[in-house]
Amino acid sequence: MKKFDFDYPIDIAWCPGCGNFSIRDTLIDALQELDINQTDVVFSSGIGQAAKMPQYINASYFNGLHGRALPVAVAIKATNPNLTVIAEGGDGDMYGEGGNHFIHNIRRNSDITHLVHNNMVYGLTKGQASPTSKKDFTTPVQVSGVTNEPFNPLSVALTLGATFVARTFSDEKELTKEIIKQAINHKGYALVDILHPCVSFNKINNFAWYKNNTYILEENYDNSNLMDSMKVAMDTEKMALGIIYKGKEQLTFEKQLAVYQNNLTPISFRKRDLTSVNELID
């Protein structure tokens, strides 16, 4: 039985042909190739189609509220930095409802991996526009087409100091697996925006559209220069696939917590000694 997979058939609620299936295969492969033991991996997900992923991976998970995966993920990592923590969900979940947490957790720079399935639509609620939907995309709500400027998660992440920002496409399995592995190994916040088609509700940005509107960054692309990376990230006409920016790793949120300055035992495994608390009372 492959680690992180199941040795019995599971009922996966995604629509046949959904990009999430290939993301799942790639994610399981990536996790297996990294030598992390299975019980140390924890998923934190919100609500939506993508956020169901942890249900289909054999590992610990906290499947919480729509938009709230990041605060939970950061807290899990802080209480036990030995865990490998992955926050996963869709573009509506992470960039819409969870927008404020997206902004401020990049600033925190927790050592977590942030996988966002970006299909530019709300799938589970049947087709409304998401923050990343392109202009003029019409839906049962945006009946005469989206007018808001699409949200660009990559440039936002770069301006907030993220040191690992990548974009990939669900069908580029090898590339995606490599990126996920590097994201997990990266010390600090790592964003992987995974473009993938929603076969039921996004008839515009489908397989063919992604093929024509993306390109894979060349071998010799230097992803260590912030300004060059920003230019690539800002280009939303032709979307680059690959690690767009991999900056110098910064001190992580956990590394800077006072509790871990001279004691690395996770606080979840420390005991409170009442004698010192009693001294506060006498």
């Binding site: 605060p71 950061v74 807290a75 899990i76 209480t79 036990n80 865990l83």
Partner: peptide, 14 residues
């Protein structure tokens, strides 16, 4: 975020 972090922390063992 505050209460979701608290719940995440309890889940993690704090």
């Amino acid at each position: 975020a505050a209460l979701n972090m608290v719940i995440g922390a309890w889940y993690g063992g704090a």
